[in-house]
């Protein structure tokens, strides 16, 4: 069996475990669905109130800004459903010293910890996000072409990769500073800024949100792609940042593993 097939099978097993676990708490699905709709609705109130007074903000009309909100919500589903649960568990492993059991297995440790726990029901955010995007496109009276959709999906994947990499960097830090769970809160609170089109941020904010914490790439770029307004150079920038963050976080994680001393070390 090739390595790729082996990892694909392993991933399927991990996914199955998570799904089976989630199915034990079926009521949770309803709770999550209500939460997602409620959360999205409340997040929309300030946006709609502002657009009540202005036809456009920083070059974005209401419905265009809604597309950004849609991508924000969908990506939030990936963050809370796939990234935070598994990587949060790593911090716990390091604290308790149980990471030993992961490291002893004959598979890539990063792969194993990254797929260990999926909160399947958080995926409902992805559906809510798609709903918002669909609504916005309908209001705009616009149907994006296949190329625009493909670009937007690619950028969405890059956004997920960026979120994952940044989180992995935070986890790598957990090997040094054990009590790090609130660092991930810090990151999610910063992610909230991604619900606004990035062009509202000027100066230092704009640079910070593109390069240091690439929120612009995560939600604004896919929206621009869907609207057919994304310059090719931005697409290249996004792909470059995705690769750079992915490689950097992997290197940082490997280094951190090297300094792991077990049992709360």
């Amino acid at each position: 069996m090739t390595a790729l097939a082996r990892y694909a099978r392993l991933f399927a097993i991990q996914l199955r475990t998570s799904v089976l676990l989630a199915l034990q708490y079926r009521v949770e699905f309803v709770v999550q669905a209500i939460m997602s709709v409620f959360w999205t609705a409340t997040a929309l109130v300030p946006l709609l109130a502002l657009y009540d007074r202005r036809p456009s903000i920083a070059g974005w009309s209401r419905d265009e800004a809604l597309i950004v909100v849609g991508f924000f919500t969908a990506l939030k589903g990936v963050l809370e459903g796939a990234i935070q649960p598994s990587l949060g568990a790593v911090v716990e492993h390091v604290r308790k010293g149980t990471l030993d059991f992961v490291l002893l297995k004959p598979v890539d440790a990063q792969f194993l910890v990254s797929t260990s726990k999926l909160d399947v029901f958080k995926g409902v955010h992805v559906l809510t996000g798609l709903g918002v995007i669909g609504w916005a496109l309908h209001a705009l009276g616009r149907a994006p072409g296949p190329l625009a959709i493909a670009t937007a999906l690619t950028l969405f994947a890059v956004g997920a990769l960026l979120l994952y990499s940044i989180h992995l960097l935070v986890v790598a830090l957990a090997f040094k500073v054990v009590k790090v769970d609130n660092l991930s809160f810090l990151f999610s609170s910063a992610y909230d800024a991604a619900r606004w089109p990035s062009s509202v941020f000027r100066g230092a904010f704009a640079i910070f949100f593109t390069f240091v914490l690439p929120l612009a790439v995560m939600t604004t770029f896919p929206a621009l792609a869907l609207l057919g307004r994304l310059p090719a150079r931005s697409l290249a920038l996004a792909l470059g940042l995705g690769v750079a963050f992915g490689l950097a976080s992997r290197a940082a994680f490997q280094r951190a593993l090297g300094s792991y001393t077990s049992a709360g070390g």
């Binding site: 502002l50 007074r53 202005r54 903000i57 920083a58 009590k179 609130n182 660092l183 809160f185 810090l186 609170s189 910063a190 909230d192 800024a193 606004w196 509202v200 941020f201 000027r202 904010f205």
Partner: peptide, 29 residues
């Protein structure tokens, strides 16, 4: 830890950046 918690409360500053950009085009209310 407490300092990190305090930094977590950054939403008002993000909203401030946003609304200063909006107000640059004229006052809101």
């Amino acid at each position: 830890e407490m300092i990190v918690w305090i930094l977590t409360t950054n939403m008002p500053l993000v909203m401030l950046a946003l609304l200063r950009a909006v107000a640059a085009e004229g006052p809101v209310g």
